[in-house]
C-alpha cells in the first residue's frame, strides 16, 4: 500500500503529459536506449540505420506473435500453444503452396485459417468448457504437434514457401522499409483501434479485470473469450507464415523459440499477467527490447548457454523492477 502512495505523490508533482505515461512502458523504453548505448560502446555499427532496420524486421515476426499473446493475456489467460501453432501455420501454408496455382493464391489464408482453428479449439475449451487455459492450450499444442509429425513423417517438409510469402517477409514495397515491418505496423494499428475504440476491445479489458462483473453488465463474455483465442491462434499462424517466408521453408520445432519471448515481451511491456491492464505500446517496447537483447548477445558471440542464463536473469530482474504484485494485506 505504501508503494502506491509514494508513487502517487511523486506522480502528482510531475507535468501532466508525464503522469499519463505508464511507468512500465517508460522503463522498458529506457532499457531499450540503455541497450543501444551499451551496444554502441561494443561496436559502432550498432547505431547505423541498416542495423536498426534489420532488427525491426526480425522484431516484426515476434511482434505479430506477441500481439496475439497480448490479447489472450489481457483476458487473464495464457496461450501455451504458440510453438506448434506457429509451426502449423508455416507448414500448412507451404503445403498449400505446392498445390498448383490455386494453392499458391490460397497459401497464406490457408495457413492462417489452420491457426484460427487451433485457436478456436482453445477458445471453446476455455470459454465454454471452463478448462484452465494453461492446460487446454498445452493439450492443443500437443495435438497440433502430433498432427504435424504424422503429416511430415517426423522430418522437415520438402515444400517451400510461395513467392507471396517470401515477398511479405523479405521484400520491401517502399524502398528501405521491409515489408515485414509494414505488416507489423498494420496489425499493430488495427489492434490499437480494436482494443481502444471498439466494444470488443473494451470487453476484453473488462473480462480481464473481472469476468463476473462483465457478464452481469451484459457482455457475452464467453463469445468474446472464444474470439480472442481464435484471433491469437490466427496471429501466431500468420507469424509462422512470415517466418516460413523468411527462411523460405517450414521446419520442425521452428516455433519453439517464440513461446517464452512472446510472453516475456508482453509482460515486460507492462501488461499484467493477471489481465485487464496493459497497452499495445508497451508490447511494442517489450518486443523491441527482447529482439535487441537477443541480437546483442549474439553479436557478442555469447554461447547458447550464456545467452539462456543472461536472458532469464534479465527477465527476472526487469520484472522485479516493475512487475511485482501488491503485498497481501
Amino acid at each position: 500500500m505504501s508503494d502506491t502512495a509514494t508513487t502517487g505523490g511523486a506522480a502528482s508533482r510531475m507535468p501532466r503529459f508525464l503522469r499519463k505515461v505508464d511507468p512500465a512502458v517508460a522503463t522498458s523504453f529506457a532499457c531499450i536506449i540503455a541497450l543501444l548505448v551499451f551496444g554502441s560502446l561494443y561496436s559502432t555499427s550498432f547505431l547505423s540505420p541498416e542495423y536498426l532496420l534489420q532488427q525491426l524486421k526480425v522484431a516484426s515476426f515476434l511482434g505479430v506473435i506477441a500481439t496475439g499473446m497480448m490479447l489472450v493475456i489481457l483476458l487473464g489467460q495464457i496461450d501455451l500453444s504458440v510453438p506448434w501453432t506457429v509451426t502449423t501455420g508455416a507448414m500448412m501454408a507451404s503445403a498449400a503452396a505446392a498445390f498448383g496455382p490455386a494453392g499458391i493464391v490460397l497459401a497464406i489464408p490457408f495457413g492462417i485459417l489452420c491457426g484460427i482453428l487451433i485457436g478456436l479449439v482453445n477458445g471453446i475449451g476455455v470459454a465454454y468448457l471452463r478448462i484452465p487455459s494453461m492446460i487446454i492450450t498445452l493439450a492443443t499444442n500437443a495435438v497440433a504437434q502430433g498432427l504435424m509429425v504424422v503429416y511430415t513423417g517426423g522430418f522437415s517438409p520438402q515444400d517451400s514457401a510461395s513467392e507471396a510469402m517470401r515477398w511479405l517477409a523479405t521484400g520491401s514495397l517502399v524502398p528501405g522499409v521491409p515489408n515485414a515491418v509494414v505488416v507489423w505496423a498494420l496489425i499493430g494499428a488495427v489492434t490499437v483501434f480494436v482494443l481502444t475504440r471498439t466494444t470488443f476491445g473494451r470487453s476484453v479489458y473488462a473480462i480481464g479485470n473481472r469476468e463476473r462483473a462483465a457478464y452481469l453488465s451484459g457482455v457475452d463474455t464467453r463469445r468474446i473469450v472464444m474470439i480472442a483465442f481464435a484471433a491469437a491462434g490466427g496471429l501466431s499462424a500468420f507469424g509462422g507464415v512470415l517466418l516460413a517466408g523468411y527462411a523460405s521453408k517450414a521446419a520442425q520445432s521452428m516455433g519453439d523459440p517464440y513461446l517464452l519471448p512472446s510472453i516475456a515481451a508482453v509482460v515486460l511491456g507492462g501488461t499484467s499477467i493477471l489481465g485487464g491492464r496493459g497497452s499495445y505500446l508497451g508490447t511494442v517496447a517489450g518486443v523491441i527490447l527482447i529482439t535487441l537483447l537477443q541480437s546483442i548477445l549474439s553479436v557478442m558471440q555469447m554461447p547458447e548457454a550464456g545467452r539462456q542464463i543472461i536472458y532469464g536473469v534479465v527477465i527476472v530482474a526487469m520484472l522485479l523492477l516493475y512487475g511485482r504484485a501488491p503485498a497481501s494485506r
Binding site: I78, I273, G312, V316, R324
Partner: peptide
C-alpha cells in the same frame, strides 16, 4: 519477489 509463477519459472 511477488512475481507471477508462470513468468518467473519460465525465466528461471
Amino acid at each position: 519477489g511477488r512475481l507471477q509463477p508462470i513468468v518467473a519459472t519460465i525465466a528461471t
